[in-house]
């Protein structure tokens, strides 16, 4: 994904990316989800870590997720205690491109960054980031740092 002057950026550490990829691979073929912890600013999002959360969608766990609000509450408390915030959500698209669906759009909150990992039986092959701007998602550039 290329970076333009206007495009906001998500920065995260390589170990977090690898950890998220591992969680996505282990969860396959079900959708898995969690929260992104860090700071949000004018330039975008600095990710300090991520959490796993339970998918409460028992009817369609292969292609839908409903993040357990109690997991959100716990992550929010821990983030605040560390001087950070829940700044976004990550979830997987098993056997599907890492592009937001209509379902993603309908449930999205402006202000969060949404990370989508496309995963197959072979592992994660694409990760993208998005944020809601009015009625549609716009892409957020991803920068991985070796810190």
């Amino acid at each position: 994904m290329s970076t333009t002057a206007q495009q906001r950026v998500l920065r995260w550490r390589a170990p977090d990316v690898r950890g998220l990829e591992e969680a996505a691979r282990k969860g396959y073929p079900l959708e898995v989800c969690g929260l992104l912890i860090g700071r949000a600013g004018d330039a975008g999002f600095e990710i300090a870590g991520f959490t796993r959360a339970a998918n409460l969608d028992a009817e369609r766990p292969h292609d839908r997720y409903t993040l357990n609000p109690e997991d959100f509450l716990r992550a929010d408390g821990e983030a605040r205690a560390a001087g950070l915030d829940v700044v976004g959500i990550w979830h997987t698209h098993p056997d599907h491109p890492a592009r937001p669906s209509r379902t993603d759009l309908d449930a999205a909150w402006e202000g969060y960054v949404y990370v989508i990992a496309a995963v197959t039986a072979d592992g994660v092959h694409d990760i993208t980031a998005w944020e809601l701007n009015g009625p549609e998602f716009t892409a957020v550039a991803i920068e991985e740092e070796d810190r």
């Binding site: 959708e31 989800c33 929260l35 969608d57 369609r60 292969h62 292609d63 839908r64 997720y65 409903t66 993040l67 609000p69 959100f72 509450l73 929010d76 959500i89 979830h91 698209h93 098993p94 599907h96 937001p100 669906s101 379902t103 993603d104 449930a107 999205a108 909150w109 969060y112 949404y114």
Partner: peptide, 12 residues
């Protein structure tokens, strides 16, 4: 009191 956004979505 915590206001917690409902978070959901999916492939389709």
């Amino acid at each position: 009191i915590s206001i917690v956004p409902a978070v959901a979505g999916g492939t389709r």
